[in-house]
Simulated assay, not measured.
Amino acid sequence: MDYRFEVAVIPVSDIDRAVHFYKALGWRFDAEFADDEGYRLVQFTPTGSPASIIFGSGVTNAAPGSTEGLHLIVDDVVAAREDLIGKGVKVSEIFHDKTGVFHHAGTEGRVDGPAPGRTSYGSFASFSDPDGNGWVLQEVTTRLPGRD
């Protein structure tokens, strides 16, 4: 039995502002549904991703901006960061974790610059949407065994 992760729900306070932000990133606008009772759902898919995000009214009880650690896997964290900056997004400097493994929560354990030798899975940059939902760019150049 396959279990494919395909959608993450993120909480936003202003749906139209979020639509504008994600459209400006160049993400694919997949769908929008609404009813006359105030329910509204919007779906976007990041470029090249099999997984999508959903936000809207009546789709989650989570506080706007409370989602953290949404990872966008990229081949080149430097180029991805420059691309986002070119689209008006405030992106952190590139960093790696002091452990050399996965990053700590928040900004704890961050070391400036890419991972030594730009090791796969080791370099990161972060940004947030207008509500503060946190995204992380992670550079993956060589996948671990069993990962496509």
Score class of each variant (00 low, 15 high):
Pro116Ser: 08
Asp131Ala: 10
Glu93Val: 10
Val140Phe: 05
His104Asn: 15
Glu82Trp: 09
Ile85Asp: 09
Gln138Lys: 01
Pro130Cys: 10
Lys87Pro: 01
Gly134Glu: 02
Val111Trp: 01
Gly86Met: 11
Ser92Glu: 06
Asp97Pro: 09
Leu70Ala: 10
Gly100Thr: 09
Phe102Met: 15
Pro116Gly: 08
Leu137Arg: 07
Ile94Ala: 06
Asp76Glu: 10
Lys98Asp: 14
Pro114Gly: 14
Ser92His: 09
Ser123Gly: 10
Ser126Pro: 01
Asp131Ser: 11
Gly65Lys: 05
Lys98Gly: 12
Glu139Asn: 06
Pro130Ser: 07
Val74Glu: 02
Leu137Glu: 03
Ala79Thr: 15
Lys90Trp: 03
Ile85Met: 12
Pro116Tyr: 04
Asn133Gly: 04
Pro114Trp: 05
Pro114Glu: 11
His96Leu: 04
Val136His: 01
Arg81Trp: 04
Val136Ile: 14
Gly132Arg: 02
Gly86Ser: 11
Glu68Asp: 13
Ala125Lys: 08
Ser128Val: 04
Lys90Met: 12
Ser120Gln: 05
Ala115Asp: 06
Trp135Arg: 03
Gly86Thr: 08
Arg81Tyr: 01
Leu72Ile: 09
Ala79Tyr: 13
Ala125Arg: 02
Pro130Met: 04
Gly109Phe: 06
Ala105Tyr: 11
Thr67Ala: 15
Lys90Asn: 13
Asp75Asn: 13
Phe127Ala: 03
Asp112Phe: 11
Arg118Trp: 11
Gly100His: 11
Val91Phe: 05
Gly134Leu: 05
Gly106Cys: 01
Val136Leu: 11
Thr141Glu: 01
Thr67Asp: 13
Thr67Trp: 10
Gly65His: 04
